[in-house]
Design a binder for these strands. Structure first.
Lengths: 328, 328
DNA sequence: TTGAAAGCGCTACCAA
DNA sequence: TTGGTAGCGCTTTCAA
């Protein structure tokens, strides 16, 4: 059997209360008591059972992180940063990959709710209403999504799209495709919104294709549609999709950027390594995770406050996959 | 306040015991009782508090997954599969990224031990002795590492290396470098061991360089050393490292495979997307995660049994990054 | 078949 | 400053 607080108390010759106190606030007991307890703790290798502690304090010391797909490097990076920050603040992390399935998402949130002090929902795929149903119960911070009552960390996608389209426009592109990601993705809608507005301003024809899954396969599957749309450049929902495009273009001997320019979104490591290297709209993935956790803790501390919405910058990184428009 | 079993009991007009029974084994109560309880559960949206349940049953329903670096797609894939399988079997997953730091690893295991029913340690970086100290306490399954008392899931690295080196030998390579990964990595030692033995048999000169971190940066940082070693081919600890090599070779205008052939290990998605596409020794990442969880559950069920060690195959995938040896 | 009671490990309150 | 006690939510005897 595992060593409990009673074992420590017995060995130290004090009550469980005193052990508890020593652990919580060593200054609150006599130095002698403290010594005894600390010695016993060391000898027995005692670690408190946090689940039991949670029962009495109402604070579990756990955070729930829910995300659509861990195989997407973007989410992996965000979660890594979130996990690291959580550990720094002495929280453990429950991880749930929902495989892009909204139903799994709401189920999981309900099931985990009592085991965590709060949730970090990365790009949640559920509807606004489903999400709102959780508001008020457990503290929730949204990553990559902004809706009514929740604190959130998002990216200035509109500005990113502005940079990208301005870049393409300067290179002479006048007809540009956007490969849409999942319909349930708020980011997708945001990116599209930003794009439409800038396209209008710049006088660029915007051709929307998709939706596709936010994966390499998604990009591969839509590449031929993009080519058929007679554009000279294409913006993809994210880097993975863009890589899928590059891949299929290469297979069909379509030159990038000679025949068509390609831009991704996220700035995952991979985007710098393919060739041609991918021009992309980069976001600070680790910062999203870190800030998300910070926000969540603030929310837990002070649930009543007005939800904070942090918007992080997006930055166009120009690489080899974009060039002058092919003369038409 | 969250809804508890008492609330359900009150609404259903039965005792807490009956609610509990209904949930555990609906056949054990009268149909009428069951109806009442199920109705109350539905109306209240009751979900049992698993932490509290764990306190009385001694079974938490949680699994701990510890890994060196979530930003490495190999681990991300393994964890994704593990998480999915765990959920299928109704377990939640505690995730801990230790950032390649052995000290963090042992700390975390101790701290989490009471909150989980077992651990999945992915490529643990701690020493054999440190690890053995945990044996007998909490059930542990090792991934990518084989030591005494633990069940494990590993990859037949020696066979993978045999395939790779045979391939290179057939292409005329007689002097080959190996870029070593982290010293604390058991996989690294295994790969090296396999390589040495095959190199001896084939009469291939093996040049060992490194160690480097198992990242793209690690590969970049060692690329020039590899070139200076006058080999015609290089095997890297893993795909990320290999990608780093490719990257730096490209920057120095060293042709792959014209001047030097490159082989990675793992078979991450990325390896297929770079150009030249990377020849690699692929392993079934999702199977590692899935089998790991299955093994862990078996171990939890029957702690006394002889530890099972599953060895999964490795398969050479030949792509564009390997070709005939440059005549010397 | 059901309910009452005890207890899982821990914390927090109240007296002493 | 300390120890006893009650209680967190749930399960599991044990009687009824």
């Amino acid at each position: 059997m595992a060593v409990t607080i009673k074992d420590v108390a017995r060995l130290a010759g004090v009550s469980a209360s005193s052990v508890c106190r020593t652990l919580a606030d060593p200054g609150a007991v006599l130095p002698g008591t403290r010594e005894q307890v600390e010695k016993a703790v060391r000898e027995l290798g005692y670690y408190p059972n946090r689940a039991a502690r949670g029962l009495s304090t109402g604070r579990t010391g756990n955070l729930g992180v829910v995300l659509p797909d861990l195989a997407n490097p973007f989410f992996a990076s965000v979660v890594k940063a979130a996990q690291t920050q959580a550990r720094r603040l002495d929280y453990a992390v429950f991880l749930s990959d929902i495989d892009e399935d909204p139903a799994v998402e709401t189920m999981l949130i309900r099931a985990l709710a009592k085991q965590v002090d709060g949730f970090l929902l990365c790009s949640p795929r559920s509807s606004d209403d489903e999400l709102r149903a959780f508001a008020g119960h457990t503290p929730i911070v949204l990553l990559n999504r902004r809706i009514g009552p929740f604190p959130s960390v998002t990216v200035d996608a509109a500005d990113g799209m502005r940079q990208a389209l301005t870049h393409l426009h300067a290179l002479g592109h006048r007809r540009v495709a956007y490969v849409a990601g999942p319909r349930s993705s708020w980011s997708n809608r945001e990116r599209l919104r930003g794009l439409r507005s800038v396209a209008g301003t710049l006088g660029v024809d915007l051709v929307e294709v998709g939706n596709v899954p936010p994966t390499v396969e998604g990009g591969v599957s839509i590449a031929d549609v993009v080519l058929a749309s007679t554009v000279t450049a294409v913006l993809a929902y994210n880097d993975l999709t863009a890589l899928g495009l590059l891949n299929r273009f290469h297979a069909r001997s379509v030159a990038v950027p000679g025949d068509i320019s390609v831009i991704g979104f996220d700035g995952i490591l991979l985007s710098a390594l393919v060739s041609p290297a991918l021009t992309t709209i980069a976001v600070e993935m680790d910062r999203i995770g870190r800030v998300g956790v910070d926000l969540l803790l603030e929310t837990m501390t002070d649930p009543g406050r007005t939800p904070i919405r942090r918007v992080l910058p997006a930055q166009l990184i120009v690489r080899a996959s974009t060039g002058p428009a092919r003369p038409s």
